[in-house]
Computed example of a mutant assay.
Amino acid sequence: MPHHLMNLRHVPDDEADEIRALFDQHQVNYYETPPSFWGISMGGFWVHDDQEAERARALLDEYQRQRFQTQRKAYEDQIARGESGGLWFMLRRKPVRTLAACVVILAIAGVSLLPFIRIG
């Protein structure tokens, strides 16, 4: 029975390439299905064998722990350099774009909630 190891929806290309290289390096017998354009199928990495699935999951767990630490450090470095931040950061850097996005979000929320407001 196939074992689904990892969903590939919203996975960056560099991460998928690194996982492929990891599996090839450790000779994991896997196959891959791509995610569909419309989001109907999730795609992912798969194996057939139970033992191979355990070995691949252990490799994936270690890889994802290392990737998390690397990405977290890169994000913290960006914040320390003043290259990233939250809403206030975006408001200072690109005020027109940020305010326009907020107005659009409020307009969509208003149109979406209008039928429910009219009921009462």
Rank of each mutant, 00 (worst) to 15 (best):
D17C: 10
G39M: 03
Q27A: 15
T70S: 09
Q71I: 14
I108Y: 10
R81A: 13
G120Q: 08
L106K: 02
N29M: 13
D50I: 05
F23P: 01
A109N: 04
D24T: 11
P35D: 03
E83S: 03
I119P: 02
M90N: 15
Y31A: 09
R93H: 06
M90D: 03
F37V: 09
R92T: 02
L91P: 00
M42G: 05
D61Y: 06
Q27S: 15
K94I: 00
P34D: 10
D61C: 04
L87D: 08
Y31D: 10
I117K: 07
L5H: 05
Q66L: 04
L99G: 02
A56Y: 12
V96S: 08
A16G: 06
G44R: 08
A16W: 08
F89G: 01
L59K: 07
A21T: 13
R57T: 09
T70V: 10
F45C: 05
A80E: 11
L8I: 01
I105D: 10
C102F: 14
F45Y: 12
Q71Y: 11
L60A: 05
H4C: 07
E83R: 11
F116D: 09
Y31S: 10
I117L: 14
I19F: 06
A56I: 10
M1I: 00
P12W: 09
S36N: 05
D17E: 13
H26D: 13
E83W: 08
A101P: 06
R65P: 00
Q66W: 01
Y75S: 13
Q71E: 14
R65Y: 02
Q27G: 12
Q71T: 06
V47W: 03
G120W: 12
D50Q: 14
W88H: 12
Q69R: 14
N7Q: 09
L87A: 07
G86L: 04
A107K: 09
H10R: 15
G39F: 02
A53S: 09
I19K: 00
N7S: 14
G44I: 07
R67N: 05
Y30L: 08
S112A: 15
H48V: 05
A109W: 01
E76P: 04
D49Y: 02
L59W: 07
T33Q: 15
S36M: 10
W46T: 05
G85H: 01
A109D: 00
K94G: 02
D50P: 06
S41Y: 14
V47N: 01
E15I: 15
P95K: 01
P35N: 00
I19C: 03
I117R: 11
Q64K: 14
S36I: 02
I40C: 05
G43T: 04
V103Q: 02
W88K: 10
A74S: 10
Q71K: 12
T33P: 00
D61H: 12
A53Q: 04
V11G: 02
V104A: 11
I117W: 15
V111K: 04
V111H: 01
A16D: 11
A80M: 02
I19P: 00
L8C: 03
E52K: 06
W46L: 04
L99R: 07
R67D: 12
Q64V: 03
D13Y: 10
E76C: 14
G85V: 00
G85S: 01
D61P: 00
D14F: 15
E15R: 14
G43L: 08
V103R: 04
